[in-house]
Amino acid sequence: MNNIHKIRMFLGALFLCLMIPVCAAQQFITLASTTSTQASGFFDYYLPIFQNKTGVEVRVVAVGTGQALKLGENGDADVLLVHDKVGELKFIEEGFGVDRREVMFNDFVLIGPEADPAKITGLKDAVGAFQRIAESKSEFVSRGDDSGTHRLELRLWKEANIDPHGDGVTWYKEAGAGMGAVLNMLAAGGNAYTISDRATWIAFENRKGLALLDEGDPRLFNQYALILVNPEKHPHVKKEQALMFMDWMTSPEGQKAIGEFKLRDQVLFTPNAGANQ
């Protein structure tokens, strides 16, 4: 009898433990976003400010842009914060999302070994750099995960007139992994190049022998935008709270908070809501 009582107590306690997180926040929205915004610590800084002001908790699921759009398509998120304009416009055109608002930007940078065997340092030309990497047959690690970064990288190869999936190409490796995992591969492997968003690079700790080699090509502009998942398609979408978040993020106050987030004395995301819409 005593044992049964103990087990019952234990189960009760366990049940209570599980209920706490369920009851704690009644008002919340789910935000599907990219790995760069999470891995850089941006959300840990930014979302509590919004929650303190409004009481609405924002729960972030950080995946690649391709998967984030898929989550939106299935109605598994309320808002998306992603960075692939082509994919976003298609998403809206197909009726899965509404109300796209550009909120902030940063840029992509080319990362490689300090020794730089392909000689791309300071080129300020991403396509030219890609051509040199291909000519010197230096190893290039691609995200290969249909993320915003991967999609941009593929567009750059196309513009450089190089088919990295062509016959006889041995220097091109598809990791099928997030930005951090790819940078870890580079740090461990020696002589490979990749393209990264600046935020992940600045926040990245394990830099052994890696350096930022090339930046500044206007093609490397990286725009982040908010999209509301279409409430007409998915009636359970928390439109009211989601719009509250989108309004705040694009408001002067929310924009100022974006610009004030710094890591290693560098601004990671520059606010630009309403700049070119």
């Binding site: 930005m179 870890n184 926040a203 394990n206």
Partner: peptide, 9 residues
């Protein structure tokens, strides 16, 4: 997984 992605090995 997250800390690995941050390079915080």
């Amino acid at each position: 997984v997250l800390e690995t992605a941050k390079g915080n090995l």
